[in-house]
Design a protein around this nucleic acid. Structure first.
Lengths: 160, 160
DNA sequence: GTCAGTGCAAACTTTTTGCAACTAC
DNA sequence: GTAGTTGCAAAAAGTTTGCACTGAC
């Protein structure tokens, strides 16, 4: 069985537990949407999710997708990213308890930091009066390319 | 001189440098908006920013606020939060290089973790090929209240 | 004087809502 | 059967854009 499938199985169980605990219903739509989400670990918008559903030939309305995304976020199955554009960006919760992104202030490019020891460092931070599920760290700054670009502009200024 | 004023002065200098480096103009509007932003360290929406400007009796249009917020984010003076609602949430960059928020998946309440040693831990994470300006960590989970609520619901289920 | 920045309003996109029909429990 | 869910379309909310005018450099 593929890795993605194992993850999906675990996620489905998690969803069922959550729904039961909150007296909500386990509908075909919710299961299908969860399945779509677990086809990729990349960020996506609601619009993108609609396209994924269409590819699966499973019809749902936008309203349902919005409701499901909200539900999944509460169930800790989906993460809502800091909005970089017009629409909200979601991503399935990484299977590790902690993740870290580098975001360039200038070109807005996002890359992932995957140093295990660094992540464990963050994961070890204790939280009082709070049950942590997932930790996500954003490091804002300048990527190499934009740093170099900025330096060139400053040099140009000095000449004048 | 008040602490807020010192911060504003530093921010203004930072803005001027950024504008100059990028050959952009230092307008009255941008200075006034920056001033408004530095009146509080709390998160705000563009709509809220408009209200702050109205209180200051300084007229600007929405379009200008959107443009300014985008500019300030690029200048590393403003932070864009993960959207929890419909509209983007901004916050002035905290004066320390690192901050950490606890976000409840259930009630969406956000609280700040202010343990200096934990923050220094995150701040010490090295980044290759990237110049870090500010680090922000979100810990998603359940607050005490929602945890208790969830437990009550589960208990109730068991009885049936 | 030039061109980036602003105001205004219209256009556009994203998200929410109301209600009838449906279906999981 | 009951009440939570969904689809649809309309409404609301948030954001962007075009253009004429203004003002920083």
């Amino acid at each position: 069985m593929s890795r993605e499938n194992t993850l999906l199985q675990r996620a489905t169980a998690q969803l069922r537990t959550f729904l039961q605990a909150n007296q909500l219903r386990c509908t075909k739509e919710r299961l299908a949407i969860l399945e779509a989400i677990y086809q990729t670990d990349k960020p996506f918008t609601i619009d993108g999710l609609m396209q994924m559903m269409q590819q699966k030939r499973f019809h749902v309305s936008m309203a349902t997708l919005y409701a499901a995304a909200d539900l999944f976020a509460r169930a800790n199955l989906l993460l809502r990213h800091p909005a970089t554009g017009a629409s909200a960006l979601y991503q399935r919760i990484p299977d590790s308890g902690c993740s870290c992104y580098l975001i360039c202030n200038s070109c807005e490019k996002v890359s992932q930091l995957e140093k295990k020891d660094a992540l464990e460092l963050i994961e070890s931070i204790p939280t009082k009066r709070f049950t942590p599920y997932h930790r996500i760290t954003y490091i804002y700054g300048l990527c190499m390319r934009c740093k170099a670009k900025q330096k060139r502009q400053l040099d140009k200024q000095k000449k004048h």
